[in-house]
Design a protein around this nucleic acid. Structure first.
Lengths: 238, 238
DNA sequence: TGGCCGCTGTACGATTTTGCACGCACCCTC
DNA sequence: GAGGGTGCGTGCAAAATCGTACAGCGGCCA
């Protein structure tokens, strides 16, 4: 399953590494397919590798006593899946599930630990990403508590848009409803309002951002706070 | 403001350090008073020290566009305030505000960085704590989105109880309402229900846990998931 | 001792969200 | 091209929560 790794990886963490450090990492990285609904790591089970998404994105989910799951964070090409391995353990109570298919560069746990030992730039970078991700999760907590469905949906669309290649991505209202923790019908109503406002568009199983600026203007500040913090810690998108 | 540091600090992170590592840290630690409403670090301003609470606890708050704040995490003697300094930056978009007064051991930023360089046990421990705190924040996100006021209040009381010395602590409904992001009147109703059920008790400006087991039973699983993860990563309370 | 301010109890209508349900449209498969 | 499964639109009553308001009570200060 290995493949040629470009010199300038599409994953933003990898592309932020100094060339030498990236070169040392390169032979251990393996390009893998991210199929929709694929589980990169399950709750409380060993995490056998970290993944640096190139395209597509992954939801971090927590399992509720009711049996369904709630999204607590989103990881795309700006990040890495498998932070527990950086922080000193090989498992997590959360599940990492692929939301939008794509590809990722995979680094097995053991190789990742070795790389951390040898590569100070990687350590530094990933610790900063840890904080940025923490901010994303924390802001999700605030947003969930304070803002209503339409604003939260707008924020979610912006986060998904940032992690997509084009303006559209596969997504159903049903799926979104479990991500946001609201009824499917509630998503339909909110999405309908955003669509009538010309900010988004959707068709069966697919959603599009049609007015990025408008969507940002109509969303709560939560999105922007997280973006600003990411940029401060890890630099502008590139 | 320095004071004698006991060999067995009440802060659980410090007490988990090997004796030698703790001994090296000890001369740099300064016991300071945590006065209620004191700001340990303000949003986007330099964090000049980390704090290891001994008694009392601190809320991590995010500022919303509306001007009020939302709680995203709680730190007591199980943790440390100032994680951004561990992760490679000296500021955070969040505010660390003392909720319940007490004392903490303070380590200036520069001494903290030196200690991290020299002390592998401290690094390891704090990275594991970073993950545990991240889990707390993530579960708060899920809880805010899914559970209703009474359950969230029960969870909050349990978290506060864990971080208190006795069964009671100073707290008003008004303050709790801004923490939970609900109306003050909503807190009064929920707290009244928990009190009638015999799980908690309160008086003007003060709240008590009267039936810890009952409160755990009546709360959502969010509390327990976070506790289990903390214990897995950092050991049982001690 | 009197007055005031802050904390709690309660009420009311308005708004948001829920749970449930049904109909229609699309798409894949047979 | 018929059938079945999936996704979206909509409606309705119930529940949760909100915004607001006011009254009572306790403690502090003048």
């Amino acid at each position: 399953m290995s493949a040629t790794i470009s010199f300038s990886p599409r994953n933003r963490l990898l592309s932020a590494l100094p060339p030498d450090d990236l070169a040392r990492l390169r032979p251990r990285l393996d390009q893998v397919e991210l199929a929709p609904r694929m589980i990169l790591h399950a709750p409380d089970e060993p995490i056998d590798a970290v993944h640096f998404p190139e395209t597509g994105w992954i939801s971090m989910l927590t399992m509720l006593e009711s049996g369904d799951s709630a999204e607590v964070g989103l990881v795309g090409r700006e990040g890495m899946v498998g932070l527990p391995l950086l922080l000193g353990t090989d498992r997590s109570p959360f599940e990492a599930m692929v939301q939008a298919g794509g590809t990722a560069l995979r680094l097995p746990a053991e190789a990742f630990r070795q790389a951390l030992d040898q590569n100070a730039a990687l350590r530094t970078l990933l610790l900063r990403y840890t904080l940025a991700f923490n901010v994303q999760v924390a802001q999700t907590a605030a947003c969930n508590g304070r803002h209503q469905i339409e604003q939260r949906l707008a924020r979610w669309m912006l986060m998904a848009h940032d992690r997509s290649d084009g303006d559209g991505f596969p997504m159903t209202h049903e799926f979104l409803s479990t991500m946001l923790g609201v009824r499917r019908a509630g998503v339909t109503v909110a999405a309908g309002a955003l669509q009538r406002a010309g900010l988004i568009r959707y068709e069966r199983g697919r959603m599009f951002v049609t007015d990025r600026d408008g969507l940002e203007a109509g969303s709560c500040d939560c999105f922007d706070l997280v973006r600003r913090e990411y940029e401060r810690l890890l630099g502008k998108a590139g």
